[in-house]
Design a protein around this nucleic acid. Structure first.
Length: 410
RNA sequence: GCCAGGGUGGGGUAGUUGGUUAUCCUAGGGGACUGUGGAUCCCCCGACCCGGGUUCGAGUCUCGGCCCUGGCCCCA
């Protein structure tokens, strides 16, 4: 038997329905903030992704050569394609641009809980705005979009300039090593490394900063910071916004293209891959041939959100099965048409067996059985049986519609 | 790329020191029963992840691979 490719998933209707429900809530949130949906190609020129991240990421991407000999890649993320799109066709649009996307991405990685080779991201990009209020907007929108999914999460907001100020006395490769130690919370390793490099005074301050959760404290640790005013503005707005967040100056991540504010969200019961959202302020447009444009955005790991939600069922609508005899078929077709026009889900029993057998089959999945035979046809009525109570009534079509509309699905 | 634990019908399972036709439950399909039913009875469908080795004989032992689950690494 053929199997699906490693790291991919099939979705049965139940799961698909709940995915669409969550997706719909996120879309709705984005729309109410004035963000509009865009779509970019599933594959791009490989260079689009290596230009920023280097050749190293090729081994983690689906890369192929097309029939014209071009090096292509399935998109591993959306930010670069969106900014490429902005440079190609968004430059003359009025700024700022508020865009969102819901799209699948591909990465060639070892699958595990919450990590798949094909996965979906919901994200937004705010292009052409450069202010604390713009950054705050993106954070607030992220918070609302994630909240709408119903999961519980913690939101961490930081700013790269804290770390940058402390690290500026180090060489670039030393900075990288120091960040690595901080990421792993290896304080002893960091201390050893920095004292071996004649920066022994630095490790205490770095460790204090990474653990710091208070703005005044963070500013005290870092001292002179050219971005201080702006950072204070940002956090003042966030405090006014009413969202719940944690200041975390230690967020460094491996993202070299972020320029200032960075933020992340983590969900519970997700195992090792518990980050469900990442975002920040960045500048990418100039890499793709555009003007240097300030941008801010985030991406939600949609599949991880779904894992974190667990098996929450979705409330579907009422479902009706239609049992009919050959004599009643014409009338049954008319009745079904009217139910569908009213937006109610109704399916014929396709077996052509006896009414009893049809109902027996229907009763396993539906809320109501509608029975139509010669008798109903002659009187232009329907027999509606509530399968939960066992009660049944002979009703006119419009009365049957009313009856069903007022009912709750099982 | 590394580590651990796994892989028997669609799902869940039994399978003895290696020994007939691989167990049971469930789901699915069909029939008995031609207008009141989710029942009952009967039937059907359908599996040892793949390949090599040991053996008279492998679901069982062994090696390699694939895949799954979790962790490490990475995380644009």
């Amino acid at each position: 038997m053929l199997q699906k490719p490693r790291g991919t998933r099939d979705f049965l209707p139940d799961e698909m329905e709940s995915r669409r429900e969550v997706e719909g809530m996120m879309r709705k949130v984005a729309r109410t903030w004035g963000y509009r949906e865009i779509c970019t190609p599933e594959f791009e020129e490989l260079e689009l992704f290596t230009i920023r991240s280097g050749e190293g990421i090729i081994q983690e991407m689906y890369v192929f050569e097309d029939k014209g000999g071009r090096k292509m890649a399935l998109r591993p993320e959306l930010t670069a394609p969106v900014l490429r799109m902005y440079v190609n066709e968004g430059r003359t649009l009025q700024k700022p641009l508020r865009w969102y996307y819901f799209a699948d991405c591909f990465r060639y990685e070892r699958p595990q809980k919450g990590r798949y080779r094909q996965f979906w991201q919901f994200g937004v990009e705010l292009i052409g705005a450069d202010s604390p209020i713009a950054e705050a907007e993106v954070i607030m929108l992220a918070h609302e979009a994630l909240s709408s999914s119903g999961i519980s999460f913690s939101l961490h907001v930081g700013h790269l300039s804290f770390m940058r100020v402390l690290l500026q006395e180090l060489e670039p490769d030393e900075q990288k090593r120091a960040r690595m130690f901080l990421d792993k919370k290896d304080t002893a390793g960091l201390e050893d490394y920095l004292s071996s490099r004649d920066h022994s005074g630095l490790s205490d301050r770095l460790i204090a900063l990474a653990g710091c959760r208070d703005l005044k404290e963070a500013c005290a640790i870092t001292g002179d910071n050219p971005d201080r005013k702006r950072i204070e503005d940002l956090f003042t707005i966030l405090d006014q916004s009413g969202i719940c967040y944690t200041l975390n100056p230690g967020i460094a991540r491996g993202l070299d293209y972020y320029t200032g504010m960075v933020f992340e969200a983590f969900a519970e019961n997700l195992g090792a891959e518990n980050q469900v959202l990442g975002g920040g302020t960045y500048r990418l447009a100039h890499l793709f041939g555009g003007e240097d444009t300030p941008s801010c955005g985030f991406a939600i790991g949609f599949d991880r959100v779904m894992v974190a939600r667990g098996d929450k069922g979705t409330a579907g609508g009422v479902v009706i099965g239609l049992a009919f005899t050959p004599e009643g078929r014409g009338w049954a077709l008319t009745v079904a048409r009217e139910f569908r026009r009213a937006g109610i889900c109704i399916s014929f029993d396709l077996s052509g067996r006896s009414i009893g057998q049809q109902i027996s089959h229907i009763s396993r999945t539906a809320d109501f059985a509608l029975i139509i035979g010669a008798r109903e046809r002659d009187e232009q009525v329907v027999t509606l049986k509530d399968l939960r109570s066992g009660m049944q009534k002979e009703l006119t079509l419009s009365n049957a519609l009313c009856e069903v509309r007022g009912a709750d699905p099982r």
